[in-house]
Every structure is written in structure tokens, then in C-alpha cells.
Design a protein around this nucleic acid. Sequence first.
DNA 1: GGGCGGCGATACCGGCCGGGTATCGCTCCT
DNA 2: AGGAGCGATACCCGGCCGGTATCGCCGCCC
Lengths: 282, 282
Amino acid sequence: METRELKYFVAVAEDLHFGRAARRLGMAQPPLSRAIGGLERRLGTLLLERGSRGLTLTGAGAVLLREARAVLDAVEAAERRTRRAAVAATGRPAVVLAAKAGASSELLAKLLDAYAAEPGAAAVDVVLCGPGEQSRYLHDGRADVALLHRPFDDTSGFDTEELRSEGQVVILPAGHPLGARPHVRLAEVTGLPDLPLPRWPRPDGTFPDGPGPRVRDHTQLTQLIVLGRACAVVPESGRTGLSENLTAVPVSDAPRVTTVIAWPPQLRSTAVAGLVRAATAL
Amino acid sequence: METRELKYFVAVAEDLHFGRAARRLGMAQPPLSRAIGGLERRLGTLLLERGSRGLTLTGAGAVLLREARAVLDAVEAAERRTRRAAVAATGRPAVVLAAKAGASSELLAKLLDAYAAEPGAAAVDVVLCGPGEQSRYLHDGRADVALLHRPFDDTSGFDTEELRSEGQVVILPAGHPLGARPHVRLAEVTGLPDLPLPRWPRPDGTFPDGPGPRVRDHTQLTQLIVLGRACAVVPESGRTGLSENLTAVPVSDAPRVTTVIAWPPQLRSTAVAGLVRAATAL
DNA sequence: GGGCGGCGATACCGGCCGGGTATCGCTCCT
DNA sequence: AGGAGCGATACCCGGCCGGTATCGCCGCCC
């Protein structure tokens, strides 16, 4: 199986339409049909059911879709990491760290300071990404190491070290009745009709249904809370540097959030190892 | 990057010789040279240093070798899992469990019994492999789930659940002076000149240097111990069903061995989930 | 119900690229 | 100095990849 074929299959499996997939791939439809046909012939199984109601993935097709995505990620990662290893040889080596924008900022700062103080430390490029995006960055090689937050982020498939565990607080506009309470229950804030929880985009870019406003980053969120249009449940560390129009109240029964540092298991780089060592020593 | 190119590069990087690699690949040397050259051109970096003393991997080449192996494993896994999904659709679904030959046999038996008792349980094919081979089986799709033993086996890159933890014992021929002791220290058995520890093959098939006899499986090992030519340090559970010519003595300071059940993280199969559930409930 | 539109499969063709053989250039060793 | 070993280059051929044209089939709608 060539990566070209896997790319074709993923494209077709994603929009379940040969013509559109071909257009997306910048090619004509017939060679695409043939490529998929060849794949099916060699695997000895149907991958797509050609019904009169359009295409459907067969069981084998669904399996191959998942596996093919993993392969393509690995190929992309191989390319990127090789290129980076090449530039590292002709300059100072650099390591790319992915972190959720607007989270764990002081932990991150301390980590960068601590690692930079080590002798022979590599340069650290920090890339800030959207919620839940870090694992993609690690998978496809755009990052070498990442800060993740359990249980929100999926850490499966990576090596991890736990760095810190913390409770969660609800961020409210100043003056809200709940703001005076020493702590609240999760149920008390999830159902507030005047302050609905915002909706974050799913990995595919769409939003779940619900009453809350759509939100793409922390700035939007802060603004919405100040405007009294939403509230948010975030890890304790998110209250540092809070605008004075906002108050934070601990949520007693919210799940604890564990910040972990994660890296691809087969990656054996001294720079990543140094970062992990610095992080666990914090 | 096509998988064909990656296969070529791995072959060349492995024996650091274009001619031999080409022969191994069943092709002539010139197209192989060109393929590697093209890879280097597109990546914009040298992968192999062509010195007068033969080939050397550059830093980028070493990175690509590691990444390419991961990609090729993933491709192989994709192919195998798709094929298995296809036959599962036209018959009873099966899941492949990899376990070290001769280890955790009663745990394995209990696990298989417990899972088989579940409603809707899939058929479980057990594949017994050499020490440390299980993770390769998981990586390249020959197995869906495996029993591993920390700290001997590398569990990185898999999701795992701990099943059991146990100490280790040294297996001695009956009548050996140490056999009467309630327990021994690790240092007391590693240096026995008359009973050297056996040498197991490394993943590449070669043996480490040392005085001990070479051993490839548990039968050979048992025989050697009975003959008084070796001793062995194994997990406690290995003493069950011991031949009466052998005695086991606890090793007080040997690292504890944890048996874990492991599976590839992206794998979402009800059969694997059921096995894991049955295993943790034991 | 017939025509039409949409979609995937098939037929056929041309160009590129992957793989082959022959040979060169270099280095090292004798 | 000469030959052996090895990788790079030159050149050729065939197959496959990708293109256009067209078919077959199914729904839909007037």
C-alpha cells in the first residue's frame, strides 16, 4: 500500500463521494475510482458500499480509514522531523512545544525558565494551539512535546509525566449572586439560563448544539463573561491575572485537572528529555 | 514520501551498503541510488554520508530511519487489520492476543475463561511469541492486544491497564546450597560461577556477551537448570508447575514485575475492550 | 413514463517515472 | 600502477498513473 493510495482512500471515505474527493485531490474522477478499486482488489475486500443512496463505508473500510489516518500522520511527522533534524545539524537545535493557548501560562513560563537554565539547553519554540489540538501536533510532527490537560485531552499513544493536579473554578462576571459563595456545585452552574456555558468547536470545526455562545479562543471567552453572556469552568490556575470585572468561585465537585507533559514514545531526543526532566523537577 | 521510498531507505540505512540493500530488495543498485537521491533532494538534506569508508547515517538520516520504521509498521498494521476486519464481517469476529511464551500462563487461562463467559465474546486467537516480541506484534498489527511485563517490556506508545504485580524468584537445581535459604539477594545469584544466568537473544537475533549458555525459549531454560548448567531469575508465578528437580527461592531485592494488558491506542474494538474489562475484573 | 441529470465504472490514450543494463569515476589496497 | 569494489551517471524500455470520452445505472421530475 502506497501513501498515495491511502491519501486517496481517506479523501473518498471522508466525503463519501468520488467526484468531490477527486476535485479536492486535484485530479479527475476515473483514476481515483481505479485506485480505490485496486486497493480493494489487493486487500480482497470491499471498502465502500456503492449503493443507490451514495457511498457507505464497510466495516473493513472504517478500519482502514482509522489506520490510514494514523499512517498519513506518521508520514507527515517523519517528513517534518527529518527536515528539522537537518536544520538542527546546521544551526542550533530547536524543540517545538505545543500548549493550549491561555492555559497553564505561569507553569509554562517556569518550565521554559528552568529548562533554559540547564547547560546545553536547546532553543524551545512554543506553539500555541486551540483546545485539544496538541495531540494532533504531536502526531503529525508539528510539535515534539506538549502540555496536555487530563481528562480533557487524549493522552493515549504518548509517553507522559504528570506535572500538577488542580481543582476547577467557575469564572463569573463581578457582582453575580453566585460570586459571593465560598464554593458551588457543578450542577449549579451548568444550568444557569442567564449564563450558559460556551460551546467550543469540535476537532472538525463544527459546534455542538446548545444554548451557549460559540467561542474559539480565550479572548472571546473573557469578553463574553465580562459582558455577562456566559460563564466558564476552568482550572484554578486560570484565575491568575483575572480581569477585575471577573470573579472565580471553586467548583467543589468538578473533576480535577491534571497537567501532563507528553511526547511521542519513539522520540529519543536529548532536548525533549531535558524538557521533561526540567518539568518534573519544577 | 511513498512507502516504497521509505522501504528502500530503511533497507539501505540498515546495512549501509547500496549493493547489498538492492539485492535484499530484489532490484538493481542504480534505481535504488536514484530513489534515495530523490528523497534527499526533496527533503533538502543529506541522509547518508558517502565517505570513502562506506556509508554513514547523518543526523537527519537517523531520525528518518526511526520514523520510517514506525510508518512501515503502521502500514503493515493497516493492511492486516483491514484484512481481519473483512473476514470478521463474513464470520465470527476474532481478536489476536500476544503473550510471552511460558509466562503468566494461569493468568492467561483465567483471562480467557473470564472473557469467554461474557455474552457476545469474540473468539480469541492466542499467539505466543519470544520475550520482548509482543510490542512488535502490536505495532505491526499481528496482534490486537498483548500481555506485557514491566519493567522488561517496553509499553510506551500503548494504552495499558495493570493487572498484577509480583516479586521474583531464582530457579535452582534441587540440592543447590542456596536452595535451603528463605530468600537471597540479587548479587548472590548473578555472580555464581557454576550457575551463570543464561543469555537471551536480542531483538536482532544476536546474543550479548557473557559466560551464560544461550537460550531461546523456556523449555531450553528448564532443561539447562535441571542439568545444573544455569539458574534463572523469574517472576513468582513462574514457579507454579515447577518440575520437582527444581527449587525456587525468593530474591528479596529483585525489581517487582508488573503484568499489564496493552493495546494500540487508536484501536476501538468492542472485543479488545471486553478483554480489557475481563482482565481488570479478574 | 420518458427524458434528464448525477454518479461511478469502463475504455482508451499519452507521458512520465520506475526499473533495467552498461559504464564511468573514485578510492583503496596490494 | 593496476585492479577490485562501490556508488553515480547515462540511456532505454515498459508499465502505470493520470487524462478525456463515454457508458450504464439509478432517481427524479415534469
